[in-house]
Nucleic acid binder design. Structure first.
Lengths: 250, 250
DNA sequence: GCCTCCATTTTTGCATTCATTTTTTGTCTT
DNA sequence: AAGACAAAAAATGAATGCAAAAATGGAGGC
């Protein structure tokens, strides 16, 4: 009997604080859902590994009923898969799955940009500009981590500017699914592609200033498509980092 | 004690045929999920109505455990909402919710068109052309029902041509959420708008033939945006429109 | 007559229990 | 020793039981 989950043995915190991250903060199964989702998204369970309910139960300090409810939801979200009578597994994402997910993300951000052009305020644009220049600073200092953090903030700002909660939620869902890979992809960002990504961000900002919806939509899609290529290439070639030849980035 | 659900009293069919509409066809809770989803999507439960678990249980002929699992999933899908300690309600969609949903649908179809341009075959385009002319026939005969049916087939063909299962699933999810309203929206489409829609479909087909991804993306978004306007206007002007009793379509 | 407060009933949330399926393990045969 | 079969163990799927919260209803007070 091999344990798929590292024996952290951290019981769930009693219903103390309502960590209102998503929904259903109060109920036990809601808390379990949040914790389990984070647990899976953060990659604490190996891909494709079997996850015995009993083990998760004692890890979280609950009975099987709320756990199974949470598992059903996570399966609906696409994070895990439930094989009939054979338990839950962390969903293994094939290369094709990743391509699809990145494309949908690209479509959602493309949509966000289009919608943002309709109602975004000058102040919001100014805020994004500030982020942009901050990011540029990180770029000049070759501070990849800082760059990535601001980069994500910019993309989230655009999604927020779309003023569409449904879109925001959906976007967050997909972001969670590929978060693990996203990190690898970001670490794969290399010099040359980095410059390209900066130029694309310039174009994004420019289109946003002019409220050019269709144009921004196109640019964002292409920008994310390039991200996709970087991520897929990175995964395809394995763990070794090829510095010169791979077109990776942002 | 008022019963929110019409007393159909139809017990769930024993695990006979695997109606593999979505996922989890075999297990009882999977069957329940499919049945409940259809039941809600088809509008058998009034919006915002309280749904006692016990009642659903005896309606489906099961115990509360699988039912509650299905409810959690439906809540995650956005079809119902679960208030802590206060049961499940059919999610009431505000006008703003509908606008958001339509916009996301528009974004997804826009993405589908963009992706379709990359790999769509001449045969697939020819099939869509045939559907187009068939739809045109319905238009000339003022056969609204036939028109909508083919119209839906065309949009689904475009989504299929995108060759992205993730997108397809997500699209189906959102389509389910607004199906109820969608039908009213179609009836709201008046003569003049009908002609517009036909012209837009001509443009869609034209862009598709030329594999003009960005252009098709724009046209599809606008096309769906116009649909949205029709739906929202219709709902705004007719508050007496009983959504529960309207049949399903488009 | 209407409102308030409290007891009763119902309903929800979770734990536990039971039945079925899968997986493991041990033994026997070739 | 390797494979096949069978029994045991464990895990899953679903039903039931129990405590807590909410809804209901009625008596009493204003």
């Amino acid at each position: 009997m091999k344990s798929a989950i590292p024996e952290t043995g951290v019981p769930i915190t009693p219903p103390t604080a309502g960590n209102a991250n998503d929904r259903q903060e109060a109920s036990l199964h809601g808390e379990v859902l949040l914790r389990l989702r984070d647990y899976v998204v953060e990659g604490n369970i190996p891909e494709g590994a079997r996850v015995p309910e009993r083990q998760l139960c004692e890890m979280l300090g609950i009975s099987r009923t709320p756990l199974r409810e949470a598992l059903k939801v996570l399966a609906a979200e696409g994070l895990i898969e439930l094989l009939p009578n054979r338990g839950a597994r962390v969903r293994q994402l094939s290369q094709r799955d990743l391509e699809e997910l990145f494309d949908v993300m690209a479509g959602l951000e493309s949509l966000a940009g289009r919608l943002a052009c309709e109602l975004i305020t000058d102040e919001e644009i100014a805020a994004i500009e500030r982020l942009h220049y901050e990011m540029y600073g990180h770029y000049l200092h070759r501070d990849m981590h800082g760059y990535f953090q601001i980069n994500q903030q910019i993309h989230e700002s655009i999604v927020a500017a779309a003023r569409n909660e449904t879109l925001k939620t959906t976007y967050a869902n997909f972001a969670g699914r590929i978060r693990r890979v996203r990190y690898s992809a970001n670490f794969a960002r290399k010099r040359q592609r980095w410059g390209e990504a900066m130029r694309e961000h310039e174009a994004i900002l420019d289109a946003l200033r002019r409220r050019a919806a269709s144009e921004l939509s196109d640019i964002l899609f292409q920008h994310l498509r390039n991200k996709r290529s970087a991520a897929i290439d990175h995964l395809a070639e394995g763990q070794d980092t090829n510095l010169e030849t791979t077109p990776q980035g942002d």
